[in-house]
Amino acid sequence: MEVFFQQLINGVTLGSIYGLIAIGYTMVFGIIGMVNFSHGDVFMVSTFIALIALMILTTWLGVGSILIALMIVLIVAMVFTSLVSWTIERVAYRPLRGSFRLAPLISAIGMSIVLSNFVQVAQGPRNKAIDPILNNVFVLSAAGGYQVTLSYKQILIVVVTAALLAVFWWVVAKTPLGRAQRACEQDRKMAALLGVDVDRTISITFVMGAALAAVAGTLYLVYYGVVNFSDGFTPGVKAFTAAVLGGIGSLPGAVLGGLLIGLIEVFWSAYFSVEYKDVAAFSILAIVLIFMPQGILGRPDVEKV
């Protein structure tokens, strides 16, 4: 039972990170029907931005309080990552809008390679590590000689994720910006005829997705303490899987999918074998999609005749 609780905590933490990345996939897919394959690498770039910002703050500027440093790192990472994603949209996707469907997809794969190779060249191919931070843990139970622990890091990750999701949900549901996004999702041309600047709305969507990926990137850096130029791929694919599992285009679906993928992975590693954790996650995806092709919370397309 103790093992179960420990894995539950670990799974939710990992799932939060996947969920944050998955939102970027699901929103972009929702609004322009494109799988943004470079999103995983945007996430990877954000881990490096966070790493560099943290180094500068703690080593050079000597910011003492780690929490204040992390707040600044978070903001810096969000700003710079948004800028990266905005630029990518501007140079690689917008000129191809109106072209055939596969064109932006290929362009996205290209951008993904550009980003990971750029980081490999600029930062070197080796793992970059930070000194472990926020190492304190709460011991929740020590019955039977097995400690169930909840670390400060995990609390930070879950709290930040939950808070941002709340803000984000509110923006999409209640603000004119969110309404414009949902309108563009349904009928871009009609939204334009009502005075909505569609291109700008799409840019903002990319920026929002990237900002959340930057949050995920910062949390990832804090949690694992190690980043690498190739780190975009696996979390990216997992987050994409999470978005599909939850129902691509659905925001709560992305978060739910992220949590599920995180939990499946962690529980499988704990009870079965670590080597097959990805196989387990993708098998569940395949099974769910057989029975629910729209994903768990996806809306089926009902055609009214």
Partner: peptide, 27 residues
Amino acid sequence: RLFSGMTVLENLLVAQHNPLMSASGWS
């Protein structure tokens, strides 16, 4: 060409996107 997934009220609010956007300072 209504936004069929949005509510009736939201359809009318999307049409007032620009005044709302400037009043909300970009949300």
